[in-house]
């Protein structure tokens, strides 16, 4: 009876429980881990990957994938920097960057839903295309940004302690959680990932819903592009390269099924936090980044093994 209850809790909150165990172990390994400063630091560093994990989760829930987010964030960030350098306002730069993100996402969505092309291939192509346009726009070297208002987005703090990106992440997480769990659109996303044909026959406009999922993914990627450009005070031609992989890893560690239809955005953020804390504790312990990469891979494997076993 008690074990049954425990196993139910384990099944329901697995990623959170793993994170708690992780925190306890990390704290035992280093006394510097559980300090306000360090936690804020982890959250701040994780915020970009966590937002991308929101993007990827939305798309993966439909049974798709979006590996173009790294290029999308680079191009929209570069566009913002380019506008700022030309003397335009922060508001305009942000809006244009967001519009670019939505546009790239919609483009992905149209190719995938209307033309029935495979998401992996389409986003592989747009990944290349928009990395290329980023090179063209930046002419291969960083565009630096000096606008103080813009720099607040990535570097500012609220109440002197909480970095703005953490706030942005929280707001986006709440919105995405609401959208996916409380609106018809969210139900439609899950139903497409669960059984696209059944969803279609049940009257779900599968094409539009899928396209919208990619548009959301593009939008979220451009938010990350803005944060990164602001934080670095410059747009880098190579910004965000291979970030999609960490975002996919976060979603998977959070229990999102790559087959679609199963997962929760909140848990994907937990997945991103686990990756972030892992990097953090290894750094605190002076483990070289080379080992960190190896260990991250092993953690992903363990996560999917636990997942496969539990299902």
């Amino acid at each position: 009876m008690n074990t049954k209850k425990l196993s139910e809790i384990w099944a329901k909150y697995r990623p959170v429980l793993i994170m708690i165990v992780f925190i306890i172990v990390a704290e035992c390994l280093s006394r510097k881990f559980l300090t306000v400063n360090n936690i804020m630091n982890v959250l701040n560093q994780t915020s970009m990957n966590a937002i991308l994990a929101l993007a990827l989760t939305t798309v993966i829930l439909t049974g798709g994938i979006d590996i173009s987010v790294g290029s999308t964030l680079a191009f929209s960030g570069a566009a913002a920097a380019w506008l700022l350098r030309a003397g335009h306002s922060t508001v305009l730069a942000v809006i244009v960057a967001l519009v670019i993100g939505v546009a790239i996402g919609t483009l992905n969505g149209i190719f995938i839903s209307r033309w029935n092309l495979q998401p992996m291939i389409v986003t592989l192509a747009t990944m290349s295309i928009f990395r290329g346009t980023t090179y063209l726009l930046t002419t291969g070297s960083p565009i630096s940004v000096s606008n103080p208002a813009f720099k607040m987005i990535g570097g500012g703090k609220l109440f002197g302690t909480i970095q703005v990106p953490i706030i942005i992440l929280l707001v986006l997480a709440v919105i995405m959680h609401y959208v996916l769990n409380n609106t018809p659109f969210g139900r439609h996303i899950y139903s497409i990932g669960g059984n696209e044909e059944a969803a279609y026959l049940s009257g779900v406009n599968t094409k539009n819903v899928k396209a919208a999922a990619y548009a959301i993914s593009g939008l979220l990627a451009s938010v990350v592009g803005i944060i990164m450009t602001s934080r670095l005070s410059s747009a880098q031609p190579l910004a965000g390269q291979s970030y999609e992989m960490d975002a996919i890893a976060a979603a998977v560690i959070g229990g999102t099924s790559l087959r679609g239809g199963q997962g929760k955005v909140v848990f994907s953020i937990v997945g991103a936090l686990i990756i972030g804390m892992l990097n953090n504790i290894l750094t605190l312990l002076d483990v070289s980044t080379y080992y960190q990469t190896v260990i991250k891979g092993i953690v992903i494997l363990i996560a999917v093994m636990i997942d496969a076993k539990s299902n």
Binding site: R187, S191, G194, A198, Y200, G261
Partner: peptide, 16 residues
């Protein structure tokens, strides 16, 4: 195959 969403619950299937 295309009638129900096997991995979703009864309620979600009924109201989709």
């Amino acid at each position: 195959g295309d009638g129900v969403i096997l991995g979703s619950d009864v309620k979600t299937n009924m109201t989709i």
